[in-house]
């Protein structure tokens, strides 16, 4: 289970507090959605879980299956099963996508004490999963995310999520920049990953994605705290009423 207790996060370079005592539990086997207005701290939560620099944790705790995530390096968190699908995936010129995928997969296998993949094994699994997501072979030969459209970048994130076999998936605004067909492909990819040992946290501004990835629970994040928790119907309610109730509460 992902267990976040009273998490407080500020920007390292500013005094601005972004997460202000966030508490959240996501059991294995469940899909939870975090919804909230712009500036509520949604992306910060994703970065804090993945361990991005520039975000300072000033209080609280985060554990995954009992292990203290905050004490780990970024790559160690990945080895422990954490995967953040980025809202804006980085472009990495000069590093071929296949090289990147193989390095990442084998780094994780090594860290998890599993046998590294041979080149034919690797190519076989990548080719098959890429096909499912409508990613063509030429894309895999290009440098990571360089020149990819918004939709291609998101598909690539889901491909990575599929290949790296995480147990805690955090999807940060995965629906932004996707047309309806791409959204369906991406959602299918995520739904295939649903399973009893895996927890999935879907961060989104809009309810639309949740029509395709139906969550077990919906949490409303505003002013750095979870303001309300409910079932999938909460997302529809928010779509009608907006976030005014919560931003008003915060003011």
């Amino acid at each position: 289970m992902l267990d976040i207790k009273n998490l407080r996060v500020k920007l390292e370079d500013e005094d601005k507090i972004i997460l202000d005592g966030l508490t959240l539990k996501v059991p294995r086997g469940e899909v939870h959605a975090i919804m909230g207005p712009n500036g509520s701290g949604k992306s910060t939560l994703g970065y804090a879980l993945a361990g991005r620099g520039g975000y300072e944790v000033t209080g609280g705790s985060v554990t995954w299956n009992g292990d203290d995530l905050l004490a780990m390096e970024v790559s160690e968190r990945a080895a422990a099963g954490v995967f953040l699908a980025f809202q804006y995936p980085m472009e990495i010129p000069g590093v071929a996508t296949l090289t990147f995928l193989r390095t990442a997969m084998n780094s994780l296998k090594k860290a998890r004490g599993a046998k590294e993949l041979t080149t034919p094994e690797f190519l076989k699994v990548v080719t098959a999963k890429a096909k499912d997501l409508g990613i063509d072979k030429d894309m895999l030969k290009r440098p990571v995310n360089v020149g990819f459209s918004g939709g291609e970048k998101k598909r690539m994130e889901i491909l990575q999520m599929t290949l790296l076999e995480p147990t805690l998936c955090v999807l940060d605004e995965t629906d932004s920049g996707l047309d309806i067909d791409a959204l369906r492909v991406v959602a299918d990819g995520v739904n295939k990953l649903r399973g009893k040992d895996r927890a999935i946290l879907v961060i989104t501004h809009y309810q639309r994605l949740l029509d395709y990835i139906v969550p077990d629970k919906v949490h409303v994040l505003s002013a750095g705290k979870i303001q309300r928790t409910g079932g999938p119907e909460l997302a529809h309610e928010l779509e009608k009423s907006g976030y005014a109730e919560f931003t008003g509460k915060a003011a």
Binding site: R52, S75, A78, I92, T103
Partner: peptide, 22 residues
Amino acid sequence: EVFYLCARGIPKRDARALLIEA
């Protein structure tokens, strides 16, 4: 870029080497 690579499980030292190599 280093963060992105590390977030995919590549240790920091290897991530830097990969970027320099590229």
